[in-house]
Design a protein around this nucleic acid. Structure first.
Lengths: 351, 351
DNA sequence: CATGGTCTCTGTATCGATACAGCCAAGGAT
DNA sequence: ATCCTTGGCTGTATCGATACAGAGACCATG
């Protein structure tokens, strides 16, 4: 079943294809009666209007912007941080009449390129993007805005994760905590044995995070360790995922350990909320029996009394969208403010 | 700056364009050494791989599926129902390596067609789609799966909203409620004066909902009224939006009215949760002082003791995706089960 | 030595639309 | 009467890739 094209319409009306094209795109280029006749005939023939792919090829623009996700599509909708960021990102797009494509990049090596190439978009936001994705975008000439600090040639909208981590670590230190469990998600493979920040295992673990596109988390962890100080005992525990349930499960392990830590420091609020769930199950009081901290300051953190770092998630997304839509806008490397929010889940070390 | 194309690569290597194309897409069609040479040269020249638009034009497939939203993009990420549905929808897409585009259709008349035409997608899901959007998709020959029951020629994944509404209405009736406020979102313009289900104002109000793409809500309201019975006094209150905050505000008005209703029946859980918030502010006990019902059974509804209708939101999305990916699959009109969940927010009318 | 089959690679038409230059007729200025 | 402008429309090249048919080269077989 051959689709009806502009050519068919042109033939039926008895005008040139160009005139039909103009009827749809540049009303000022032809007389109104003819335009009406063409549109009417087109609709009668079942012609739905200029073909998108052909138009994109010719015009080189799609009015569509992509978001690179190193996680699955489902993750984008399940994680509150992600949802907030995307909501912010969508604001300027909506205002500009643009659409938005979600590009989940499978973990298979090299697939970054394929997914990004297949996507016909005018620009990309690296919500959670690997270096390979950035390279792919560059090689295709697609502008890209990242969500973490990068080299001088890149555009980004981020916070100073090192400073934020340091601030949170220092808070715990001030409270007297010297035995801390650091709860990260599965991408961070805990190096076995005593912590050696300068050692190879630790370096590799951070590298794994970066490979998964979690640069900000890697930087955040460095900051945390810096703030906690060299004399603090830090044990790493990996959660199965970055979710509330995974946090609850992982925290169970940490608490059952022979030597219970005095504080559990989570790299995200969702993990921390899961830890609070686990504490509640065990009848432990956060901030008194165990100190718990998160990162992000989701709305739920406020309700749960979680000590955390507030970052302007929605603004991060919104500004990324604005930079993408307006290539002239400067500066193109934005570091937004963050803030330590102390609530009841953190308290002095009483042991 | 002219982009580098396949032709350039072919020239540089000294082979035909077709061979370069094969090097990227059909490795079995040429010898490995030549393929390697081509890929290497291409990468050295800064060729990022086959252009997406051109490929789409030629192949007629994009591996991208669209979701039509009559609301803004932001809404898609803010409403829990929407987020759950999208998470379900994304599952099969992710498995098939496809991407997903969100198409917010502005309210301007006729813009449905434009947005849908501009989107180069292999299929559409009408999460919240108007008739105009469906027409546009049909005229472009794009397959579309709807989220509400439609005519026999359409594919859809929905629940029986009339039966569900009736069940909920009957529940309230059994509890003795005969003075009910029906809280819907702004798309439903409450007809003034006494309710006349067969009258023109009511018909127009339902029509407005349909125009906004909220067919399921319109059907649901009919069902509710049917279940409540003809002797039940029903007053309509429109919330400014379908959100928790809007529900809280709107419920304030309903409660301050001279004649307080014995039950507030909300067309969604988010609105109902907002009503519960308002009751808590006023020190009223849901189910005793005022009965409140929702619709959807979001996770939060369980925690808040909300009486509601459970529908398989995630499954609705997932199955819509599966139907879209597999045109052969039958049946293509799925009505999923729903269930009345009675919790503490509904109780007998004690007045 | 002819025949047939594989394996590689090539040339051309095509997907559906748009940009650009240009053509013709009508009307106003000189 | 001639020149020039303007409005309204047309023809063709082009965007960048892929499908398809087919051409040589090479080897095995009878």
């Amino acid at each position: 079943m051959p689709r009806v094209t502009m050519k068919d319409v042109a033939q039926a009306v008895g005008v040139s294809v160009m005139t039909v094209s103009n009827a749809f795109n540049r009303p000022d280029q032809l007389s109104t009666p003819l335009r009406e006749r063409i549109l009417q005939r087109a609709s009668a023939m079942g012609y739905g209007g200029p073909n998108a792919a052909a138009r994109h090829l010719r015009a080189g623009r799609t009015h569509c912007y992509g978001v690179v996700l190193s996680e699955s599509l489902g993750y984008a909708f399940n994680d509150p941080y992600s949802v907030l960021w995307l909501a912010g990102f969508s604001e300027p797009l909506q205002a500009a009449g643009a659409t938005m494509t979600l590009l989940p990049v499978p973990r298979a090596p090299g697939s970054d390129r394929d997914v990004i190439r297949r996507a016909s978009v005018d620009g990309l936001a690296g919500f959670c993007a690997t270096h390979a994705a950035l390279e792919a975008a560059r090689s295709c000439g697609i502008p890209m805005v990242l969500a973490h600090t990068e080299d001088a040639d890149s555009d980004w909208v981020a916070i100073d994760d090192f400073a934020a981590g340091t601030q949170l670590g220092a808070h715990l230190r001030r409270l007297g905590h010297r035995d801390v469990v650091l709860l990260a998600d599965r991408a961070f493979t805990a190096p076995p044995g005593p912590l050696d920040v300068d050692g190879e295992p630790f370096r590799l673990a951070l590298h794994a995070l970066a490979r998964a596109g979690l640069f900000d988390i890697a930087i955040r962890i460095r900051g945390l360790l810096h703030g906690l100080g060299p004399d603090c005992r830090v044990r790493f525990v990996g959660a199965g995922a970055n979710s509330r349930d995974a946090g609850r499960l992982a925290s169970g392990h940490a608490l059952e350990a022979a030597e219970r830590p005095t504080a559990i420091c989570c790299i995200s609020d969702v993990l921390a909320l899961g830890v609070l769930d686990a504490l509640a199950d065990d009848g432990l009081v956060p901030g008194r029996d165990v100190t718990v901290t998160g990162f992000d300051d989701l709305p739920e953190a406020g309700r749960s009394g979680l000590t955390t770092i507030r970052q302007p998630i929605r603004d991060k997304g919104r500004l990324a969208g604005e930079l993408l839509l307006d290539p002239e806008r400067t500066p193109r490397q934005l570091t937004l403010p963050h803030q330590l929010v102390v609530r009841t889940s953190s308290g002095p070390n009483l042991t």
